[in-house]
Design a protein around this nucleic acid. Structure first.
Lengths: 340, 340
DNA sequence: TTGTACGCGTTATCAC
DNA sequence: GTGATAACGCGTACAA
């Protein structure tokens, strides 16, 4: 009825429970013949070491905490799903599992992590959605709870983190648009200082323009607002209504890009658009977008969290530009090839 | 350094460890005076009972397994994120946590669940994405592993499940469109038999039409294909090219609806569209959609899984139609009110 | 090589 | 009411 224990296996194999443990944890110590007998018994009984007992004994849960946030309804689906799967997959390779918990805000998250950690339920935690002055890294550091962050805070970097090179992403988008003949390339993004990723994406756009000598006189091409579809549309209108409108725009998110795209389609304007995150919506809208290598991020974070050393690890991963119809040289072609 | 144990609390409060345990698990047995002293010590030390030890003792992990799937890239982001959060939130109320794991396919999922269950890592599992002839319910039933399924299989229902009344959702969409003056209302969905939800959504459309006496001569208005944007566009073309085209269409998913919508916009056609799932993309496209009460589903499933009884529980929850511009009486109005 | 004893932290049972 | 004892399953130092 109940799952078999080492004792059961030992009885079945005619050895002591110790020998069974040795077969599993120090196979070289046991005679091959005996080992085979024990292994046969293990297979036959379907024995699995009890993780709870192992955890108690080793005082390590092999569990990693992760806060699951309610989805922001206004923003498009994020890369969150992909990230979670990548983490779970990477954890599996290290024989660790993810434990999901909820929290009302970052402070509450720290409190909940502490509770779980004190209770021995988790060994560490993965932080998602890092903001410029995020209270979680310093809080957890003070509590001496192992963690790794996806993203960098504004100043502090005395902890392990993995991040996408956001600036490189938008810069690549600019390169792509320039290669397509565009000279007036706008940017729509979060207000400066609102989010670290936002600032870095804006910076990449500027860098990209500068690289091609297009930075001069581009001030009116830099528009900001909250991350919503309506804002994207509003900013798109503003861009198109300018006396010297841009021919292309780089957006800090697919959400903003989708807003711009809607205006473009309604007005029948010619304006290339590139988004960021490569969300499913981007594919749906045939929107070019900068894709984050989330799977790699997941693996890197698990490594950073579990990988031995006490010294912090830092890792910056390059994103990849996915080109679709929204920024193709010939603007707004039939995306599906169904009609002329 | 290490988290405090009952022993530490007992020492601090000048009692035996037993009394501490009693304060926590049978407060009425201990003198109020002593209790207060112990509680003070608990607060002061920040003591949290070790869950691992509790699990070993009680042989129950208070963990619920959940398979996290890689996102289907062609399909729009599902309601998966919302569902996971709802589960975690509901689990919290019952002092349970979600443990994430991965698997290659349903058979592999059953195998992994069995391994986790034998290892004492999980008490039960929540099943997502149930298909018509899903092997998981019978498999887990045979293994006597507690589980609850989001969705029903084709025939078997000898287990606990919670589902959305999909038929009611599409029927409501039809009602809404009829109220808007539509008489020729088409349906685009999965091929018959491909998925249980697909069949039920088709059935609801048929029921809805029948209710208004519109079923006759609607055969050419029922189109099927795989769940992708391209298919949606293709089917949309087919509908519009018909000698007597529909004036409205109910789609089995937001993905298909988005495909139809794209064709509508490109051709400037007049065709109301209603999707299903109310994904973020639906909001982005101003697409009317049937919203599933996912939070309620999450709570119901946790209750079904943990709520005592051995007899299976069945629960059918009503969806809600979210009306947006794509199906508004006046077709394709300016969705943002920015231009005339 | 194999068996014996102990402890990880908790809780339930049973005397006091 | 309170305190000692045993047990959950495992790993490991120790002795045989």
């Amino acid at each position: 009825m109940h799952p078999p224990t080492v004792e059961d296996v030992a009885r079945a194999a005619g050895v002591s429970r110790q020998t069974v443990s040795n077969v599993l944890n120090a196979p070289e110590r046991v005679r091959p013949e005996t080992r085979q007998r024990v292994e046969a018994a293990i297979d036959q009984l379907g024995y699995r070491p009890n993780r709870v007992a192992q955890s108690l004994r080793a005082s390590t849960s092999r569990m990693i905490g992760y806060r699951i946030e309610p989805m922001h309804p206004q923003s498009l689906s994020s890369i969150h799903d992909r990230f979670l799967h990548a983490l779970a997959e990477a954890g599996r390779a290290a024989d660790h599992h993810l434990l999901l918990f909820t929290a009302n805000d970052p402070e509450d998250e720290v409190a909940n992590v502490q509770a779980l950690h004190r209770a021995g339920a988790i060994d560490g935690v993965i932080l998602y959605g890092i903001s410029t002055a995020d209270p979680r890294p310093p809080g957890l550091r003070q509590l001496r709870i192992p963690f790794a962050a996806f993203g960098r805070t504004g100043a502090d970097s005395a902890h392990s983190w993995v991040d996408i090179d956001n600036a490189a992403g938008t810069a690549a988008a600019v390169d792509h648009l320039v290669a397509g003949g565009h000279r007036r390339i706008a940017f729509v993004g979060y207000p400066e200082g609102a989010a670290a990723v936002g600032d870095r994406r804006a910076e990449g756009w500027r860098t990209g323009l500068d690289r091609h000598g297009l930075l001069a006189g581009s001030r009116h091409l830099d528009l900001r607002g909250e991350d919503s579809l309506a804002t994207g549309a509003w900013l798109g209108e503003a861009l198109l209504d300018h006396p010297t409108p841009p021919t292309a725009v780089v957006a800090a998110t697919d959400t903003l890009a989708a807003g711009v795209l809607r205006v473009v389609q309604r007005r029948g304007a010619r304006l290339a658009v590139v988004g960021f995150d490569d969300t499913p919506t981007a594919a749906a809208l045939d929107l070019s977008s900068v894709r984050q290598p989330i799977e790699a991020v997941g693996h890197a974070m698990i490594r950073a969290l579990l990988g031995g050393g006490t010294e912090p690890t830092a890792q910056l991963l390059p994103p990849e530009l996915i080109v679709r119809a929204s920024s193709a040289p010939q603007l707004n072609p039939d995306p599906l090839g169904a009609t002329p």
